[in-house]
């Protein structure tokens, strides 16, 4: 199979998938140039093999599997020079915000009590939900996002994430909790409450 004679691949489809790949890599690497490079490598590797695919979604899955591997390689390189457990000002402020959701007895303040999001499948079907979801992911601090996305998007088990990034299990748990709480608050504010308004 080559790019030229594969009926599944047309320039418009390729351009679209490339955009998706750059966005996906960018969310995790937080470096546009690096994201572009990784996508280029992944596409070249994915399209050079002599494999056949039953359809576009199978091909897309294959391309993203290769992309995930390339992203992991880059994260490994980065992990050697960054201290993931160092707390940034943004992360400290997220922790303070989290503390402010609770009364002195560590129970929710009435205003901060998590609400019922109804049928989540309904949101997942809507285009606009995914735009808000991406914006919320982008809004997470870099290291927090990296740990979270390794766990949830690259689908590492938590002990593997800790090992790859050389952080302790308890620190890993703290970071994942911070990410999840940040993300759920962002979605609650910008989608589950705001998203229902017609303007």
């Amino acid at each position: 199979m080559s790019e030229a004679n594969n009926p599944l691949i047309d320039p418009a489809w390729l351009a679209e998938i490339r955009r998706d790949m750059v966005r996906f890599a960018g969310l995790q690497l937080r470096d546009e140039t690096l994201a572009e490079d990784v996508v280029q490598e992944a596409l070249a590797a994915a399209l050079s093999g002599a494999r056949e695919f039953a359809g576009r979604s199978a091909l897309k899955t294959w391309i993203f599997a290769i992309l995930k591997n390339k992203i992991v390689d880059q994260i490994r390189v980065k992990a050697r020079t960054t201290n993931v457990s160092a707390l940034s000002a943004e992360e400290e402020s997220m922790d303070q915000t989290f503390d402010s959701l609770f009364k002195a007895n560590a129970h929710w303040t009435p205003a901060a009590r998590p609400s019922d999001w109804g049928d989540p499948a309904e949101s997942l079907r809507q285009q606009r939900f995914w735009a808000v979801f991406e914006a919320c992911l982008k809004h997470l601090p870099e290291n927090t996002a990296r740990v979270f996305m390794m766990r949830e998007f690259l689908e590492f088990e938590t002990p593997e994430v800790c090992a790859e990034l050389s952080i302790s299990t308890s620190n890993c748990n703290v970071i994942l909790h911070r990410a999840r709480n940040g993300l759920r608050r962002c979605l609650e504010k910008n989608w589950f409450v705001a998203g229902e308004q017609p303007c």
Partner: peptide, 24 residues
């Protein structure tokens, strides 16, 4: 606790959204 029950459902929702992101 209704608040924490909702929090738990929201955690499940996040997992579902992350898993569904690439196949949306």
């Amino acid at each position: 606790c209704r608040g924490c029950t909702n929090f738990g459902k929201q955690m499940d929702f996040l997992r579902q959204a992350c898993r569904g992101y690439l196949s949306r």
